[in-house]
Design a binder for these strands. Structure first.
Length: 300
DNA sequence: GGCAGTCAAGTACGC
DNA sequence: GCGTACTTGACTGCC
């Protein structure tokens, strides 16, 4: 088990998701921003390695407008050295990487135009991971998408569209349960399309078909082929106390976390903490899990 | 320097 | 049919 946090580190004084407005797009601005984002990504990974945080989600804003028609710049070649250097650091330190395109990336949209645009966005994500020289265990996670008044047809449209994706994308894609499509639906897709299911604990608590956590684990874990995909990835968060249902907690709920660890024994997986205070909770989680056999031997 | 409004993108939902 | 929430950090213009 590796433990991690998404996209941002708030302790090191830089962020790798700096961006700018479309209106102010220039090649110069792009180069400057990507360069600073990559520098910060490297710093973030150095911090993580020093602290024993071995799972990290790379922000989709690393290369702003990468899949937008406005971008004609060959950032792949221009930054190839920096990407490969970062990738080599990741591999040397035994780190796991994920990416998560935002809500606008929908492969099951009724509109072909939206699928095409999403496909370009996914290709950008795959290129980032390819340029880093990471194998297919570095994943890109998306949700099933919209319902469009017909869940079954929309679920099958996901499967059909998945089959149309470039292999560079398909080999990395994993589908994540959410409020609209609970894990049972993702498993149907997985069985037909052959992609793994990324289990989101918090979404599951909001939307499920009665499966408890142990049962859900028993069902989705086999969708990951250890040789091709690596061990499963799991997203974890808990309810913000007093917040609207579905809001993410600001910091880790220690009791909930410990009970989650014990409920998921003996499954091994990499755990992404989707919690507002990011690396703070990840560090706390590492302490809380320090006696868990799945983490032993991983402290720096 | 600080604040408020806005930002590429889509969908669901309430009116 | 239309407007707004979703979710969220960072940019931008304004003071």
């Amino acid at each position: 088990m590796r433990i991690g946090y998404p996209c941002l580190n708030r302790s090191i004084g830089c962020t790798s998701n700096r961006t700018f407005r479309l209106k102010s797009y220039t090649e110069e601005r792009l180069i400057q921003t990507v360069s600073s984002n990559l520098d910060c990504l490297k710093k973030t990974l150095l911090y993580n390695a020093a602290k024993g945080i071995l799972f990290f989600r790379i922000t989709s804003d690393l290369v702003p407008f990468a899949s937008h028609p406005v971008c004609k710049f060959d950032w792949q070649s221009y930054f190839s050295f920096q990407f490969s250097e970062i990738g080599s650091f990741i591999r040397t330190n035994g780190m796991r990487i994920s990416m998560h395109p935002d809500q606008f990336t929908l492969i099951n949209s009724v509109e072909k135009r939206i699928f095409d645009r999403s496909s370009k966005e996914l290709l950008y994500h795959a290129e980032v991971l390819d340029l880093m020289g990471l194998d297919a265990s570095a994943k890109i996670q998306i949700h099933v998408g919209g319902v469009y008044n017909d869940r079954d047809a929309s679920l099958h449209r996901f499967i059909r569209r998945f089959g149309e994706l470039d292999n560079a994308i398909a080999r990395r894609l994993v589908v994540e349960n959410d409020e609209l499509y609970p894990v049972a639906d993702c498993l149907r897709i997985s069985r037909e399309a052959g992609l793994p299911v990324l289990f989101d604990v918090f979404h599951h608590s909001v939307s499920n078909k009665g499966e408890g956590i142990p049962q859900a684990f028993a069902e989705f874990a086999p969708s990951w082929d250890p040789n091709r995909d690596g061990i499963p990835m799991v997203d974890y968060s808990s309810q913000l106390p007093g917040g609207r249902p579905g809001m993410h907690a600001r910091s880790i709920d220690e009791g909930d976390f410990l009970s989650f660890l014990s409920m998921t024994m003996p499954h091994d997986f990499d755990l992404m903490l989707e919690i507002k205070d990011k690396e703070i909770s990840a560090l706390r989680a590492l302490e809380l899990a320090s006696h868990d056999p799945r983490l032993l031997g991983q402290r720096p």
